[in-house]
Amino acid sequence: MGFLEFLAQYWPRLLSGTWVTILIFACSAVLSIALSMIAGLCKLAPTPLLRAVAVCYVELFRGTSLLVQLYWIFFVLPLFGLTIEKFTAGCLAIGLNIGAYGAELVKGAVLAVPRGQWEAALAINMAPAQRMRRVILPQALVIALPAWGNLLIELLKATALVSLISVSDVMFEAKQINGQTFLSAQVFGAALVIYYILARCLLTPGMRSLEKRMRSKLGSA
């Protein structure tokens, strides 16, 4: 069976899988951005306890595999009476994992904001929270955006793992179709192309234009 013939027959399933992939991507992206902000700022906090918690979180999730974390959340947490639905478990594992990597980016970006900005905010008597929110974070965001573009591609790639806990994403559909038809080259080829299109034609240009917009908003374009 040719590739086009194959697509003509199976595109509805691949498309529905793609939607699930996009949904998981969106949910875990929101979660990981929130977590990385919290953890990144905690790593810079003056309180040793907050710093220690953030360091533990980051090292724990960067030091083990996403697959191990996913299985742990999905198979082990229920034993403690915490049953999580598979879609949520997938988003949670990916969000926690990528959030740990993102925390380092947030920390690095905040530290990269020029010293003078901190001092100027202090000079006009801004409270620390106000200074962070109105002066430092907006600039740190612009500094961090290019690295976040790469991290979001990693996140998109990570979503393929949720197929292993049978969330019906595009990878899961591909495996099912492969199991029924043995058209491996077509089906896995199609899956690869779908991921490539999502990453190269949607994610990368989107992040580029966001970078441009943010830079022009800050007047540093």
């Binding site: 790639k157 793992l161 990878m171 491996s184 080259a185 080829g189 991921y195």
Partner: peptide, 22 residues
Amino acid sequence: IEFIRSTPLLVQVFFVFYVAPQ
């Protein structure tokens, strides 16, 4: 390189494993 870097390793593993025998 761009293609391989922006697609999941999991799919590539399946691809190599199932497609080579074809």
